[in-house]
């Protein structure tokens, strides 16, 4: 398998005044170009840490992270991040928040085209009506949607999403999941998505990476999701394979893993 993104023996130890904390131990993961990976695991196990290492926001204390066979050194717009807490800049409007990213990655394009691209991405997440609001004036789910629009607008090689749909109601969530699947199919980006939602993991991903509990968390199991694409949530709901996969993830999370942790 040709590795696009390759994590080799990643260790992560946070040192603080109170001592060292080993969050990740020997994490190995290879991802193909265009693959959609879901990262699932109990809270605090180290999912965000893995994502941040790929983003380049954290430096692993051991091992290497390679993207296209080059070591990841620092962050860059080719790896867009949808942050767990949306991270919009509060002094910019919704429009300006997305535009900041677009101006950066499409610096060579004319102004009008960049504006249009911002609005296009805001429409995608149904936030075009609130383009002139500031983050302080919109709800948590709306902020999350803008964060997604910002990342999508960057047309990254790797899209890193940290619980992107967590703060959304079921309908908006379904709608955005569908858009992300559609965009991913069209652009063939490689996606790493953290989620707590088993259905979401099975519906969206090609493989589900299940992490063991921390400290010294690692990858417990990797589940192949060999459901045909394009996927439709209503059809899948009738599909026994879907329920089988779902059951396997649940079993990992709530049986194998709780016992190990106890």
């Amino acid at each position: 398998m040709t590795a696009y993104l390759d994590l080799q023996h990643i260790d992560m130890t946070f040192s603080s005044a109170k001592g060292d904390f080993n969050a990740l131990k020997d994490v190995n993961l290879t991802v193909k170009k265009g693959e959609f990976l879901a990262l699932i695991g109990h809270s605090g196990c180290g999912k965000s840490t893995v994502l941040n290492i790929v983003a380049g926001l954290l430096d692993a204390s051991g091992g290497v992270a390679l993207l296209k066979n080059r070591e990841i050194k620092g962050p860059g717009p080719n790896r867009a991040v949808v942050f767990q807490n949306h991270s919009l800049l509060p002094w910019l409007t919704v429009f300006e928040n997305v535009k900041l990213a677009v101006d950066k990655v499409m610096a060579d394009k004319p102004r009008a085209e960049r504006r249009e691209w911002v609005m296009h991405n805001l429409k995608l997440v149904h936030m075009d009506n609130a383009a002139d609001k500031r983050p302080g004036e919109i709800s948590g789910g709306m902020k999350q949607r803008v964060g997604i629009a910002r990342a999508l607008a960057m047309q990254p090689d790797v899209l890193l999403m940290d619980e992107p749909f967590g703060a959304l109601d079921a309908l908006t969530r379904a709608h955005l999941q569908d858009s992300v699947m559609e965009i991913q199919a069209k652009l063939n980006n490689t996606v790493l998505m953290i989620t707590h939602d088993v259905d979401e993991a099975v519906l969206l991903s090609d493989r589900i990476v299940m992490m063991t509990n921390g400290p010294s968390a690692g990858i417990g199991e990797i589940l192949d999701v060999d459901l045909p694409r394009p996927r439709d949530r209503l059809t899948l709901a009738q599909d026994p394979r879907y329920h089988h996969l779902r059951g396997q993830v649940l079993a990992f999370l709530y049986q194998k893993h709780l016992k190990e942790a106890a």
């Binding site: 926001l57 962050p75 717009p77 942050f83 991270s87 800049l89 910019l92 990213a101 950066k104």
Partner: peptide
């Protein structure tokens, strides 16, 4: 969080001051 956004966008020093540090500190 704001610094992370700036880092992912790879804002250069001047942009960082103008778009993030200055408004956040104002």
């Amino acid at each position: 969080d704001y610094m992370n956004v700036a880092a992912v966008l790879k804002l250069d020093k001047l942009e960082l001051v103008r778009r993030v540090l200055f408004p956040a500190t104002l």
